[in-house]
């Protein structure tokens, strides 16, 4: 029995590590944006490498956790929900890693007037991810709390949509930028905003799973 209990503890630890890694990637991406606006490109590159390493670790953790849940036939009732949650959550570090690489490689020319809006978009998305991770942790203990957190994710995602629309308007109404620059910046607004969309997708699924359980 104690062997069995150790198995459960190992699983809880690896899921917590997976979730904490996502939080860490999210924080690193926030720092990366700050460094990018400060034009500290070396810092941006270092952070991109850190994010990539953590993202790979997340992949490994997700795979080993999924394998273990199936192999040990654990939580047969919630197994599908947990696996769905882990797989969808894993898309977020993937997106953040992709964004970091794109910023590091393409170094978009973001005008200073737009810095505040870009920052608030990143902050807002970061809040979405933080709420989602909190909700995901609660899913294993208190599904009611999960629903509360996930509803807040949706609320922040809507705020993110408003910020990104405002940003796009500002970009396309700026006569100092040529069309290629405008398209490039719009692309960055969209990929940064995509994090909140992914968070919302996971939150929606989590709400359904929590209600079911």
């Amino acid at each position: 029995m104690s062997f069995y209990k150790n198995n459960q503890k190992e699983l809880i630890d690896s899921i917590n590590l997976f979730l904490n890694n996502i939080l860490e990637i999210n924080n690193l991406f926030e720092s990366l944006i700050k460094e990018f606006f400060l034009k500290n490109y070396k810092g941006v590159e270092d952070l991109t490498i850190k994010i990539s390493n953590l993202e790979s670790e997340c992949d490994k953790l997700r795979r080993s956790t999924e394998r273990k849940i199936y192999k040990e036939t654990l939580i047969p009732e919630q197994r599908g929900d947990v696996l769905g949650m882990l797989e969808n959550l894993d898309k977020i570090p993937g997106q953040l890693q992709g964004n970091a690489h794109r910023i590091n490689t393409e170094k978009p020319n973001i005008h200073e007037d737009l810095h505040d809006d870009f920052n608030s978009l990143v902050q807002n998305n970061s809040t979405c991810v933080k709420l989602l991770i909190s909700g995901s942790k609660q899913f294993f203990i208190d599904p009611k709390k999960t629903i509360e957190d996930c509803l807040l994710v949706s609320k922040h995602e809507s705020t993110g949509d408003k910020i990104s629309t405002k940003l796009k308007n500002a970009i396309f109404n700026n006569n100092n930028l040529d069309l290629s620059q405008k398209m490039h910046l719009r692309y960055f607004v969209e990929i940064i905003d995509e994090v909140a969309n992914l968070a919302e997708d996971v939150a929606d699924r989590l709400i359904i799973s929590s209600v079911k359980n």
Partner: peptide
């Protein structure tokens, strides 16, 4: 008991 679902499973 508000157990984690893995402990609840156990």
């Amino acid at each position: 008991l508000k157990l984690n679902i893995f402990y609840k499973d156990f």
